[in-house]
Design a protein around this nucleic acid. Structure first.
Lengths: 209, 209
DNA sequence: GTCTATAATTGGATAGAC
DNA sequence: GTCTATCCAATTATAGAC
């Protein structure tokens, strides 16, 4: 069972959702950078506004609160990856499918490094309701990974004691990237490393040579 | 070269460091719990005080600011693990030494789960100076791990492309634990799993059977 | 949709008695 | 070292003109 989409609340409706989204996205992006650099608690609405070239008050035409900006970031970083889960129903067996997912996950993370870091780190600054929505998405994602790990283990392709624990390790490993990644890293190499760390490493898949 | 000890500033000197530390530690512990549950930005001095059974103003007999409480948490969680580094000069070869360190790290983390989470997550809420001290410790710790990985790799006991990258992965993997660990987990099993994930997994050590 | 001006409140921090 | 009382700065958020 998938988590319910969070189309409901103010985040989607502040602007009429008919794609005058540009400005909103600019704000989200600038805010994410500022949150990443200085921390959510040290970021004022004035700071965010300045970073996007407007006055503090103007932000309230796009978001109802500072927390809602954070929520927009967090929601995006947990909703978007859900589409990668289709890879788990794609070609190949568990190994190929999971490899594809790891690659997609790492590439997405590299693409949205800053927002990803903020979404992970500032989760506790969300309201309980918003935090709930985000963690539900994450739990679902984790469960889907666990299921592939489990499937692979049953076929003898992975060697794991507890698929649940291994899935957590795989996710922690990948998400850890957002803490230290910077532009000097070669993303292709990163992907190769992390496919190795997860598939051959944590999950003990022995490549057939 | 080791990082300089941070004995200097206010954290150690607020109380005369002659062990009327009990109260201070109570505050740190209560604050850590509150920060972990609600986030640093959502925690007020009054909240922390209430959690330890005093009034907000009284906290200032022990700490000069809210940030300093956080710093005390972060400092402790980065200073203490440094002593485990002695294990890297202890018995056995690189594999045994690193295994010992992983075990110590995971056990310590389990023992101080809450503070560890806060120290990781709220790093960005520290002042630049304090953040610097903490990250210096962490960098040193990481470098030491990298060196053992490197030594093991040269001896053919680990199979890694880049010891630096592998060391990061090992640390991210372990630190990830603090996000989800709770009292229902069996720490011994956890240690076994994470020794496997890191040593046999990420570092591709083949146990000699 | 952005601005200036300002309201309103939170919340970190201090003063001074006990 | 803790309390009550309070200050005061920061900052979220609003009002209303343009």
């Amino acid at each position: 069972m998938e988590p319910v989409r969070a189309e409901d609340d103010a985040v989607a409706s502040t602007t009429g959702s008919r794609r005058p989204r540009r400005r909103r996205d600019e704000i989200v992006e600038a805010a994410a950078r500022y949150f990443a650099d200085h921390g959510y608690s040290n970021a004022g609405m004035r700071d965010i506004a300045q970073a996007v070239g407007m006055r503090g008050a103007s932000l309230y035409n796009h978001f109802q609160s500072k927390e809602e900006i954070l929520y927009a970031i967090a929601l995006r970083m947990t909703e978007d990856p859900q589409q990668d889960l289709l890879l788990l129903e794609g070609e190949g067996g568990p190994v190929e499918r999971l490899t594809n997912l790891v690659e997609a996950h790492v590439r997405r993370l590299a693409r949205h490094r800053v927002e990803h870091l903020v979404a992970l780190r500032e989760l506790s600054a969300l309201t309980p309701e918003h935090r709930r929505v985000v963690t539900d998405y994450r739990k679902y994602y984790q469960r889907r990974i666990r299921d592939v790990v489990d499937a692979g283990a049953r076929l003898g392709m992975f060697e794991v004691r507890d698929p649940h624990q291994s899935a957590i390790a795989v996710l922690d490993l990948m998400n850890g990237i957002s803490w230290w990644l910077n532009d000097s890293h070669d993303v292709d190499q990163l992907v190769r490393d992390y496919v190795d760390f997860t598939i051959n490493g944590v999950l003990h898949h022995r490549p057939v040579r």
